[in-house]
């Protein structure tokens, strides 16, 4: 057993320095704030109320520029909305469907099976409306940035005035958490940017935390299933391994 811990430790030692190849761009980027997330840790689950508030923030603030193309309205059932609520949200959107029997495209209200429409028809249209910058799709944003949730949160609340001597380019904004410190996105959330349906206090920090929780869910809706299964599998393997250890000892007792 002792030897095995040695090997396990060795394996960990071997893997750990190699397994952190993620090079953070530009060495002078501010380290993200450390926030405690409900869905973090071994037993983490998404804070349903926060995810739903985050959906409201996304729809009222982010969706003007950012798409969320891997999320369908049916997925909203997973964050605690009932079918009528999800259908009602879908119906607020107009989708283009077709062609019909005459070969014409037509408009209809959104259905549960539709994916959230992106705000721009194509990249050129998006750049034309945003001073040349392209607002990225947010579906995987939490997984696509080093620092994940903490980075996004810090970015949202971290806008500040440029320090002396730094000239911010035309149409850009200063943000110490962004690589290069100059970001095209204007400060997206402010106090009272959203009036929450559930009456939660709408401070800048609360709004940022809610929308990042929502985006964490959007990036990996299967996170809860993964962690739930993980706890069971690891427990099972620990017991099985212990039993196998006893069997090994018993079988090997007559050797030497």
């Amino acid at each position: 057993m002792r030897k095995f811990f040695l090997i396990a430790a060795f394996t960990a030692l071997f893997a750990s320095p190699l397994a952190t190849p993620v090079a953070l761009a530009a060495g002078d980027v501010e380290h993200p704030l450390e926030i405690k997330w409900n869905h973090g840790g071994v037993f983490g689950t998404f804070d349903r109320a926060a995810v739903q508030r985050g959906l409201q923030v996304y729809r009222e603030v982010c969706s003007g520029c950012h798409g969320l193309k891997y999320i369908a309205f049916r997925n909203l059932l997973e964050i605690g909305l009932n079918e009528d609520q999800a259908k009602a949200i879908a119906a607020e959107y107009t989708m283009i469907d077709g062609p019909d029997n005459e070969g014409e495209m037509f408009e209809r209200p959104g259905k549960l099976s539709d994916y959230l429409p992106s705000p721009f028809d194509n990249e050129m249209a998006a750049r034309a409306s945003n001073n040349g910058a392209l607002p990225p799709d947010l579906s995987l944003m939490v997984k696509a940035r080093a620092g994940a949730e903490n980075y996004l949160y810090s970015l949202l609340v971290g806008y500040s005035d440029a320090p002396d001597g730094v000239t911010v380019a035309e149409g850009m904004n200063y943000n110490p958490y962004f690589p290069g410190h100059q970001i095209a996105m204007a400060p997206p959330v402010d106090d009272e940017a959203v009036d929450y349906i559930d009456g939660t206090k709408n401070s800048k920090e609360q709004i940022a935390k809610d929308v990042v929780t929502f985006l964490a869910w959007a990036a990996e809706p299967t996170l809860e299933a993964r962690k739930r299964m993980g706890v069971k599998v690891v427990l099972y393997l620990l017991i099985l391994t212990f039993v196998l250890y006893l069997v090994k000892r018993k079988v090997w007792a007559d050797v030497h």
């Binding site: 396990a8 993980g230 391994t241 196998l244 090997w252």
Partner: peptide
Amino acid sequence: VKDLYGMGVFGTIFA
């Protein structure tokens, strides 16, 4: 049996 035990330990780390 020794290999099976090793697979248990490795499988746990993997999991």
